[in-house]
Amino acid sequence: MNRRIKEKIIEGFFFLNGIIVIGILVGIFVILVRNAWPAFHDVSVGDMIKWPSWNPDAYTTPTYGILPMLMSTLMVTLGSLAVAVPVGIGAAAYLSDVADPRVREIAKPIVEILAGIPSVVLGFLGIVLVGPMICKLTGRYNGLNAVNGSILLAVMALPTIISLSEDALGSVPRSYEEASMALGANKWQTVIQVKIPAAASGILAACMLGMGRAIGETMTVLMATGNAAEFPGSFLGPVKTMTATIAIELGEVAYHTTHYYMLFVVGLMLFIITFFVNLAADVFFHKHTRAR
């Protein structure tokens, strides 16, 4: 066979693979939009926002307020970031600057293995371990709440944050470190005031990817947060996130009802949120790699 034709075929093969990925993304978006669309005939956007609760099985008038679950998702996500970001950056700084190289060689793969723990296992730990601990500490009788979900999601987001932040810190030019040390800074000052700011865009990208993971996570929050379809009162109250709502209800909902379409609206929102979070992460990441 002619070499040029061969080249063309190989090129076409890789092009096709790239296109498939984009096609899947667009396809998912189209399916979500098509299934969500009829909901807007039945329920106005104003009502979706105004209704204080998500109660599709109500005897008289079902309500489809999306704010409670949006709020729940936000609370659990931000709560998890509040835990995972400081711990993650601290751990990354430890691995990249404090740890003995031998320790790092062992610790980093372990952190990455942590990412492989099935979410249902973490959810289980939420029920049997974190929940009872929260009960003991707060004196409540139910430990399945937003805090529980936040802690578990933090555990899920940590590997991403640690691993990518460590890479970002490791790619800070050595000359910055030398300049700082030569000015009489100690290791600690150098890490906090020079290395972390220099790696900021990479660390930010890491946190955004961790956040993307937390927003989309389903099984863990479904098991650990209590799933009360009401407006979340506090971090210690039960919440029902967008992902949990879809997972619980989509399997049992009657086909082509308002409820069914509304679940796709929720899915569409989730898709858009994670899309933009990941996009932001990507932008920060490129800023980071370009800055070098």
Binding site: A179, L183, G184, P197
Partner: peptide, 15 residues
């Protein structure tokens, strides 16, 4: 290092 300062081969201002 506060008494003995250093200027490096490649200019290395902080970002």
């Amino acid at each position: 290092r506060r008494r003995v300062g250093m200027v490096f081969q490649k200019p290395n201002p902080f970002p």
